[in-house]
Design a protein around this nucleic acid. Sequence first.
DNA 1: GTATTATGTTAGCAGTGTCAACATTAAAAT
DNA 2: ATTTTAATGTTGACACTGCTAACATAATAC
Lengths: 202, 202
Amino acid sequence: MSSYHHGNLKQELISCASKICERDGYTKLSIRSLAKESNVSQTAPYRHFKTKEDLYAEIAREGFDNLHKAISKSKSQNTQDVLVSASKEYLKFGTKNSNTYDLMFGTAVPDFTKYPSLFKSANSVYRHITTLFAAYSKNKDSKFIQEKCIDIWAHLHGLVGLLRKLEVVPAKLVEMPDTPFMAVNKINEDLDGYLKRFIKNI
Amino acid sequence: MSSYHHGNLKQELISCASKICERDGYTKLSIRSLAKESNVSQTAPYRHFKTKEDLYAEIAREGFDNLHKAISKSKSQNTQDVLVSASKEYLKFGTKNSNTYDLMFGTAVPDFTKYPSLFKSANSVYRHITTLFAAYSKNKDSKFIQEKCIDIWAHLHGLVGLLRKLEVVPAKLVEMPDTPFMAVNKINEDLDGYLKRFIKNI
DNA sequence: GTATTATGTTAGCAGTGTCAACATTAAAAT
DNA sequence: ATTTTAATGTTGACACTGCTAACATAATAC
């Protein structure tokens, strides 16, 4: 009588999946448990996602949209400050939403072009970084800007990975020499300073 | 009669798993199929690996050892050339062994400290980069060297990710503006030049 | 040579992605 | 307004997974 049809299942599944994904990691996310959590039969999600990868793509898209929002916050007039601030937000997003970040940049969805909206959201993030850097850079040559944006993105992406490892590692290992942790920890303790130097040095 | 005991199962499983992992991605690797491929019962691997993560750790360790070998090849006297060559080998390893690379740097084994030999192998790679850079760098300050090594590593790691996306993407998208692919492709076409500039600019 | 330990096997549990067949309802076509 | 159709839900099933317990056999230590 009341609710054979759910009404808003698709969006609820995506939201719920995003939560589980962030809490437990995307490998722990199962379509069946997802269905259970939404009080719906085990195969109901298949009316909205043909495969699990389709669901992953949706979560990843939401992730890129959130990342875009995060790095678009700064409203400063100083183009360098904006770039530094965006970089910081990027690192924050990657470390605070690390499981989702994994899904976004890992191999769960190997080919973004299969999912146009995901492809678009991901590229928007890149385009935004390009815009910020173009505004900051003295050298306005397009090829130069593009290459430097790759540099920035690659660098930030790598840092996210390292900062995450830092969180997992036992505290005493942070002081262990011959290990990247000490250096990363130093960076982490003065992120602003580090990022300012980084941007300036590009 | 002949072979109730296999004799060398553990190593064969690791080798076989490495192959499957590289061919199909580590998510496709199953202990059962692995056992089948070695003509052994479904649960035999559990005598050698308590959990799947233990097996992953072993594959990852092998990966780090191979990465170490790869970036240690150059025998040039010129410290800059050595660094450039090692960087190139790093990128090559990451793109040619991309599925294994995923396993090594992803979340399949979240905490390396649980696996001492893996931890050691991974750190050896980092130490090697440190050594190469320390030999090259004019500035011998330890803190400086450590931070720059993080920079190098992060940068290379990020590039691996981008280069891999490039391989997946349809050819025509490479020429699409507002997309990182064109820039990455340019870099890829002259990797040596790019890396030389990169190292010089550090 | 016997006891112990390492390494293999079989049977089975609970959970998974996915599909086919069927049920119900909302939306569109008439 | 009624009927058709498409969307969205459910049940049941298949083949697969990680993993455990109970048992079998072989290598090793004494």
